[in-house]
Structure formats: C-alpha cells, structure tokens
C-alpha cells in the first residue's frame, strides 16, 4: 500500500478493523511516516474514547471475592509479572510456583518497608497467632470458597497493620472460659477502625454470640458481634464512634444473639488498650 492508501486506512486500523495483512503493512509504514503516525494517534484517541465512555452500570455482587479467589487459587498464586505472552490463550494460566506464605506476606508489605511499626505489629501478631495467618494463607481451594470474605478481611487487616501508627495488642484469655483462646487486636489510636483476630475460641451454642466491648473508663459501648468458625477462628473489623485512642479496655463476652446493651456474662478474653 502507498502512503495515500495507508492514510485512508488508519481509522480502520485504529478500530482494529483491518485484516492481518493490512495490519502488518500499516504497522510497518507507521515506523517510517510521521504524518501517518500523528494521524493514527488522533484516531487512537477516538478509539480509546469509545472504550472509556461506557455508561455507568451496576456490577453483579461478589466479583471482588471471585477475583481474590482466583489470585489465591491452587496450585499457586498468580503472581505479578508472571504474565508471558497473553495474546491468544486467554485462559492459559501463567501460574508461577506457589510462594511460601512468608514471602507473600512480605510481598504485601513490601511497599511500606520503611514503616517498621507496621512490620513489628505483624511480627508480634505472627508470634501470638502462630497459625491463624498460616491457615488463612495456605487454604485449599475448597476452603477458599467458604472463606473468601475472611480472606478479604485478612487483606484489609494486613493493609491496616502496615499503616503507620498501628500497633498490635495481645488479648488475654480467661483460662476458665477459653483455655486455648488466643486473640490480638490491630489498632491505630488515631482512627476509628481496628481489626480483631481470634483463634481457638469455643464454638458457641445456638442463640449465643460473642460481643466486643470498648470501655473508655466511664462507659462501655459495643464494638460489634461475631461468631467463630469450626476452628474457633474469626477476623472482625471493629468500628468505633470515636478514635480508638479514647478507649482504655477491650473485652469480649458471650451474649444472646443480637447482642446485649451491656455485658451479661464474665469476660472471655480482653486487655487494656
């Protein structure tokens, strides 16, 4: 094709509407002809505009969970940079070998490497929780199905932990009520959100639920309700009305379903904040 013909075909090329042979010819010509290249850039803008100017549509529920599930699905995680040539084979999974959970955790935290407070919080948490993260990160595919929401929470939590100013507080279990119970809360005194991780808490009978209490020294408010899974584990996001630095004590009790206005049973686990 001559310059004139190429020039004419550029809008078609920008729309990806040319056949393979035309595509190659135009591509080669663009390397040698600035006028055609400029024209192509203009039409490329039009094409991009057509892509980008989509109407606002509500999105089906659960897509975020499904994406995370894909990232985590066995045999290995899809790792950044693991894509090779993506043309053609859209479902050929360029999966890399699974990374041990430690390096994945490090990967998540890498961007905030400078924030040693965040890393210290993670280290403390790992020490205390020995297992819960491991469990979360090494779930089998079937488990992922049931716990994706938790995975999502875990990710939020890890993000939270790596924020500057966050610290981890280990909660003390009452030996009489929860002999094996372990819990930690990731807290940033300047914010109103915290994450609670619990492990090996007794599974409660029907009609009972764990309730979190936040005490500022004068009054006690509810920090939320939660249940544990078959392994006695849970990750709970706590949202307080005022920054968490205002609270002095966090405690957890067992209450009737729906929660109580105040604790009606002895503390299962808790600590000073």
């Amino acid at each position: 094709m001559k310059h004139e013909q190429i020039e004419e075909a550029i809008p078609l090329y920008a729309l990806d509407a040319v056949n393979r042979r035309e595509h190659q010819e135009i591509e080669a010509h663009l390397e040698t002809c600035q006028a055609c290249l400029d024209l192509f850039h203009e039409y490329q803008q039009v094409a991009t505009g057509l892509l980008v100017s989509q109407p606002f549509l509500p999105v089906p529920a659960g897509m975020e969970e499904r994406l995370l599930q894909r990232l985590d699905s066995s045999p290995g995680a899809v790792l950044p940079g693991s894509a090779s040539n993506t043309s053609g084979a859209i479902y050929a999974p360029p999966y890399a070998a699974p990374l041990p959970w430690e390096s994945r955790l490090r990967g998540w935290l890498a961007p905030q490497r400078a924030l040693s407070a965040g890393l210290a919080a993670v280290a403390a948490l790992l020490l205390v929780m020995n297992g819960v993260l491991l469990w979360q990160l090494n779930q089998t595919q079937q488990q992922v199905q049931q716990t994706t929401t938790q995975s999502l929470q875990l990710r939020n939590l890890i993000s939270e932990m790596s924020q500057q100013g966050s610290r981890t507080i280990v909660l003390q279990a009452e030996p009489a009520v929860a002999p094996d119970g372990k819990a930690a809360v990731i807290i940033n005194p300047d914010t109103t959100e915290a994450y609670l991780l619990v492990q090996s808490l007794p599974k409660l009978p029907q009609g009972r639920i764990y309730q979190i209490w936040l005490n500022d020294g004068k009054t006690r408010i509810s920090g939320g309700l939660f249940n544990v899974d078959a392994n006695g584990q849970a990750i709970v996001k706590i949202t307080a009305p005022v920054p968490l630095g205002n609270y002095k004590v966090l405690g957890i009790t067992v209450e009737p379903d729906g929660g109580s206005p105040g604790p009606t049973s002895p503390r299962v686990i808790g600590n000073n904040l």
Binding site: L51, V52, Q54, P55, F56, L57, P58, V59, P60, M63, E64, L67, L68, L71, L79, P80, G81, R104, G107, W108, L109, A110, P111, L152, R155, N156, I158, S159
Partner: peptide, 23 residues
Amino acid sequence: ISQGMQTALVEIHSRYISPVYAL
C-alpha cells in the same frame, strides 16, 4: 500492585470494575 500488594489491586478493582464490566 507490581510489588505484589493485593489490597492495592482490590482498590483498583473497586475504582474501575463498573466501566470494565459495562464494556
């Protein structure tokens, strides 16, 4: 994301899933 932070991908997802899905 390029450093492997999944929560950053979740944030990008929440920003752009609507136009991507619409397209």
